[in-house]
């Protein structure tokens, strides 16, 4: 599992942490049952705030890709398949694009609904 952040990027650091995990799953380098490094370890190694890492992990939990358990850390779920991670990554990119265009969540969801029709 490779987690990388570029402090000079405009993408928030927590989002970069989450994106690293999604990429690892999408490329088949990590899968269901794999444990993510502890948030403390990631924060220490990358020189970023512990809460920033936890924000990234919480994004992944909200997407159903990881399970956060006290004492067990963050573990990739059965949903952490390549396709699922790809979908999450595309959704993140869509959200980032919507923000850049000054659109809100409802506008982005309208675009997704329109694409389904």
């Amino acid at each position: 599992m490779l987690i990388r952040v570029d402090p000079s990027s405009t993408v928030p650091l927590g989002d970069q942490v989450a994106a690293s995990v999604r990429r690892a799953v999408a490329e088949g380098r990590a899968g269901a049952g794999d444990r993510l490094p502890s948030a403390r370890e990631v924060a220490g190694a990358l020189g970023i705030n512990l809460h920033t890492v936890l924000r990234g992990y919480q994004q992944l939990r909200d997407e159903g890709l990881v399970e956060l358990r006290r004492g067990r850390g963050a573990v990739l779920t059965e949903r952490a398949t390549g396709g699922r991670a790809e979908l999450s990554r595309s959704a993140s990119e869509l959200a980032a694009l919507a923000r850049r265009l000054g659109l809100d969540e409802a506008d982005a969801l309208d675009a997704v609904r329109a694409a389904f029709r």
Binding site: I3, P7, L46
Partner: peptide, 15 residues
Amino acid sequence: RTPLAPGERYLWSRT
């Protein structure tokens, strides 16, 4: 080589 940007920080970890 795994390409790295000039200021990029990383952690690779496996059990």
